[in-house]
Design a protein around this nucleic acid. Sequence first.
DNA 1: GGTTTCATGTAACATGTTACATGATTCT
DNA 2: AGAATCATGTAACATGTTACATGAAACC
Lengths: 179, 179
Amino acid sequence: MSVKNKSIYAILGILNILPSSGYDIKKYCDNVLSGFWNENFGHIYPTLKKMLADGTIEIMSKGKNEKKIQYKITSRGEQALDHWFLEETKLQPVRSEFMLKLFFSSHQPKEKVLQMIEKYKKVHQDKLEKYRVMEMDLEKGIEDISSERAKYIKATLRSGILSHEATIRWCNETIEEIC
Amino acid sequence: MSVKNKSIYAILGILNILPSSGYDIKKYCDNVLSGFWNENFGHIYPTLKKMLADGTIEIMSKGKNEKKIQYKITSRGEQALDHWFLEETKLQPVRSEFMLKLFFSSHQPKEKVLQMIEKYKKVHQDKLEKYRVMEMDLEKGIEDISSERAKYIKATLRSGILSHEATIRWCNETIEEIC
DNA sequence: GGTTTCATGTAACATGTTACATGATTCT
DNA sequence: AGAATCATGTAACATGTTACATGAAACC
């Protein structure tokens, strides 16, 4: 099994909650994990095939009217998932094109730079807004989820909120500095 | 020219400050840009060749005792750089393996999760410490750099500081919540 | 009847990382 | 003399993204 393809763990984690199709997995990534994880079809489908071959997932027998292919986690997959939790988590190298631009922008007209920062701020304000909505939705729907799971979901949401708030503060501070 | 390879702009930005060799560029990335950008040799050298072919950089005539190949930016490279500043900056999709683990960790023993967060906190504290040192170094060495450049360098440092501080606050909050 | 969403997949392309190879120079 | 750093580069591998192809079903 590949050493670095972390997508398999995202998929195992999702299937560990609920058997799903490739399409469902993509939706889950887009709707729920989007703050810290992303996948695309061109990656999901080949990965599912690999995982089938590895025996970490298997195809569920379809009902009569079922058209989609649903996968579920195997006990081998559960083991792989458990093992992953104990592994060290390395931070992936950061790459912020925005910061790269800013770093090199001393020859650019000040207004352009300020515009760029304002835009960046707007993007983060919008994301923050979405996180806040998600946090409220979680509070509302909390009965449907075990309190243990809710705790961890909330923690990832809080992470997004604190990080976007910090970014917005940085934008304000930096706009001041540059003016 | 490739649409997405942003490394060329990192390289152009560096050469726009000072003609450098591939090795110098790598060092600059490691020492100065590391908070928001990274490059490796396996990427830099082929990219330099491509850029030579594109005409955005050129080889400087070597002095007698010079062994390293120094590149400098051409006027075409300057244009490419200027053009890049006006382009829209898209945020790159996030991928945090740490958050992915946390999200799925409701079946894991609480102590393991807490340990994982403590470790994460430690990593960010260490990085924060480094940023603070870099900030002080910048204050000290500020005469060597134009005040315009210093402003932008400082802004990127502040971004690292605020973001690590936010992460540490999140760790403390989350440790409380989980206990 | 037309648009959107569901659903699966491949091929081409682009990007990024690691390991290896080589040899000079500088430091201890 | 040996270790560390300087310096350039390639090959293999791994990963990730986009565009394309196809067709059914649900919605308006």
